[in-house]
Design a protein around this nucleic acid. Structure first.
Length: 400
DNA sequence: GTTAGTTCAGTTGAAAGCAATATTATCGGCTAC
DNA sequence: AGCCGATAATATTGCTTTCAACTGAACTAACGA
């Protein structure tokens, strides 16, 4: 009792110091304990354990939606494995590649170059035929007796870009090697992704499949509770707030990442407002802020043309137009292009851009048949006024 | 009142054009023998 | 001779445009009761 009273005084003295260690809420932070993932952890561990005896484990294919702890669990297993292997003489090599990182791995060549660089082999940035890299890679693997595990995080985006040839080649590497062994762990967000693969690749890559189901609200609550202990000052986060974050994130396919973001941003807001305690209204504000940030970010990263289309839509919306149609947008858009010295695209393309903006959730568009008066997309914007104004301000900056 | 056709205003899919990059092939110069 | 880097030649992308078939309900006209 006295301890907690002291805590309250302490935090009061520090002037609404909500966080103790904010780092622990970041995505990059790897906690030692991963609640509700014991089963997966054990499964992967069991499958992969044979490497310690220099035997080849099965290839593993891991899938589950974003924020279900796939990467976390896999990297946890890997680290523990490396620690256990430290003493023994098994020649264990683990390579982790995040295929989403555009720069390093957007072609077969780049990926191989990346893998080779793990072996200390530098290859020219460009200029060598891809086959050369393969044989180099094989040679390197085979040059010494070793057990190599390659973790391909977000393989689905890799395959979408460069096809499944590379997986085919990698999975059959073992037949070519005499001394070494290669195991592949593929991690994917997309569950249906495995079905798009070549059957041969599919069977060898997914010798073992591990599924990460979404967290439900109470599991999320456990995760958050665990992290709040590390991240926040004692007593700064009431259980109601944790529950609220968990519930909000559970609505969105149980994304733990989102739950943590909510909590972190809510904490930041509380701190900024000088409140020593995170309140539920801060969570609401945090959710709005996250939404806004996400949309503003997508807008920022849109190409000029797409921004111009959005500008056209917004200016129609600003004129009080309800039920904006593609034709109107196109007129307004070509006006904007003319006054800004941009060459306008065809209506065909603009139509696609509109549906893209819809997919991103920036606007809301759906095709409606207006009977005798044709068929078109009806566009509206379902955002709070503040966000719309923010969008408008940004686009005025771009297009005057 | 029902039914069968029309019609509009784009939507959607496929194919092809085009410019920017990436990958391969080729060549001349340089080094080591 | 063999290797290296530079450059030319070729292939691959990513974004657009062109062409053309398709859509679905409001509107119309004809139908039958």
């Amino acid at each position: 009792m006295q301890g907690s009273l002291k805590d309250i005084f302490d935090s009061y003295v520090k002037g609404g110091r909500v966080f103790k260690n904010k780092e622990t809420l970041s995505i990059r932070f790897a906690p030692d304990n991963i609640p509700h993932r014991d089963r997966q952890l054990k499964q992967i561990g069991l499958i992969i354990a044979p490497v310690l005896r220099n035997e080849k484990p099965s290839n593993i294919f891991v899938y589950g939606k974003t924020g279900t702890g796939k990467t976390l669990v896999v990297s946890n297993v890997i680290n523990t494995l490396l620690k256990s292997a430290d003493g023994s003489d098994s020649r264990l090599r683990i390579i982790y590649v995040n295929c989403k990182m555009k720069k390093t791995t957007d072609t077969e060549y780049r990926l191989l170059a990346h893998l080779l660089s793990y072996f200390g082999e530098t290859v020219p940035y460009t200029g060598l035929p891809t086959n050369e890299l393969y044989s180099k890679f094989y040679k390197y693997l085979d040059s010494r007796n070793q057990n190599v595990i390659i973790v391909l995080d977000e393989v689905d985006s890799l395959i979408r870009k460069i096809g499944d040839d590379i997986l085919y080649n990698l999975t059959r590497v073992n037949q070519e090697l005499d001394n070494s062994q290669l195991t592949i762990i593929g991690i994917s967000n997309n569950i249906s992704f495995i079905e798009t693969l070549d059957p041969r690749v599919r069977s060898s890559l997914s010798e073992e499949e591990i599924i990460f189901p979404p967290y439900n609200a109470s599991e999320l609550r456990d995760i958050l509770t665990e992290r709040t202990g590390q991240a926040f000052s004692p007593g700064a986060v009431p259980t109601g707030v944790v529950a609220k974050c968990a519930a909000l994130a559970a609505q969105e396919h149980g994304d733990a990442r989102k739950a943590l973001d909510l909590l972190r941003v809510a904490g930041e807001i509380a701190e900024r407002n000088g409140s020593p305690v995170v309140e539920e209204k801060h969570v609401d504000m945090a959710e709005k802020k996250l939404d806004t940030d996400k949309i503003m970010e997508t807008i920022h990263s849109q190409p000029k043309q797409s921004q111009a289309v959005l500008k056209a839509i917004l200016s129609l919306y600003g004129d009080g137009e309800k039920n904006i149609q593609t034709g109107d947008v196109y007129d307004s858009y070509s006006r904007i292009c003319r006054s800004n010295g941009i060459t306008p695209l065809t209506q065909r393309r603009v139509s696609d851009l509109i549906s893209e903006l819809d997919m991103f959730g920036v606007i809301n568009a759906r095709v409606t048949s207006k009977g005798r008066y044709g068929r078109t997309r009806v566009i509206n914007i379902n955002h709070p006024e503040t966000l719309i104004r923010k969008m408008g301000d940004f686009l005025v900056g771009e297009f005057g």
